[in-house]
Design a protein around this nucleic acid. Structure first.
Lengths: 167, 167
DNA sequence: TCTATCTAGTTCAACTTTCAAGAAAAGGTC
DNA sequence: GACCTTTTCTTGAAAGTTGAACTAGATAGA
């Protein structure tokens, strides 16, 4: 729960407000920017692209639905819809899970892999131009630490996904 | 345009990849967190709440649609739909613009203001817990600078919205 | 085994976002 | 004024997201 603390709310200082606004501003613009870039160059929103990336890095390019949803930080419902769409594109297919008859694997197809290989350079370049080309090495390091702290704090209880994110 | 550079794509280093993933991870979790918090406590998504905040800070609590869309970084179309929804809630109303008959002002109603006053403490607390309580003063300062750099780089050409964001 | 409970994944309805198209007024320019 | 372009805002349809309800299969205990 997020309740107001007793003794009145602890408002943000002027500096904190400025930082918060800059954060909202930057993250909004970044998400828009990448969504448009990928929609234009790969025909899908950023989050869908992320799913293909996850699959491409998984052993045998496949993953259980629930695990994929967890890795990509989306709900199972959203993943179902997303995979249905990617299936229509021919980039992913579903496969029954051998060990658990309830289970499904999402599998990256060869077409999906090719599409990823084609669009990855442009996407990386977009990320680089928007972020890494503009920051000093110290800033990059600092940003990594800060984002790690924030993510850890927001991580649902009992989730172990910690180390993998900083390697 | 974001084209791959000649001589092959400049891939991200391992460190950059780690930072990028941490960034995606943190920003996704943060957006989800705030969306849920506000949906639960204020009955609207984060972006709608942001619109009310913008209006509350504008002179006479009103703003031209186009200007509001620009400030909130959303399309005019999206704003039209959003205001229609907020109007149904009674938190905003539309008002014809005196000087330009095409124009509309979005006006924050008293009910809207009250709703904001009620939910602001909880929201600020959520932001504080997720971000500022976890970062050192140096990190907060650094984050502000970094986000400012990124936002500036992504700013559409010819936009002057620069100084207002750091104050 | 029988039953209760939990987990995996999908589906539905309500809502939000996007994109393209369109109506209305404003701003030139001749 | 007549004409053309631009700006403002809305609309409608398609796509995407959400949260709850639902089905089927797994799991555990008596």
């Amino acid at each position: 729960m997020t309740t107001a603390s007793p003794g009145g709310p602890r408002w943000l200082t002027d500096e904190e407000q400025g930082v918060w606004r800059a954060y909202l501003h930057a993250t909004t613009l970044m998400e828009d920017h990448l969504d448009r870039q990928l929609q234009r160059d790969a025909g899908m929103p950023h989050i869908y692209y992320g799913l293909l990336v996850h699959l491409s890095q998984a052993p045998r390019r496949r993953k259980r639905m629930t695990e994929l949803a967890k890795d990509a930080k989306i709900t199972r419902s959203r993943l179902s819809h997303a995979v249905a769409r990617l299936e229509k594109n021919g980039w992913v297919r579903r496969e029954d899970c051998a060990s658990d008859k309830r289970g499904q694997n999402a599998v990256l197809t060869d077409e999906g892999y090719d599409m990823l290989a084609r669009s990855a350079p442009g996407h990386v370049e977009a990320v680089r131009q928007a972020m890494f080309d503009r920051l000093s090495p110290q800033q990059v390091e600092s940003l990594g630490e800060i984002m790690h702290v924030i993510a850890t704090g927001l991580q649902p209880e009992g989730t172990d996904a910690d180390l993998p994110w900083l390697r």
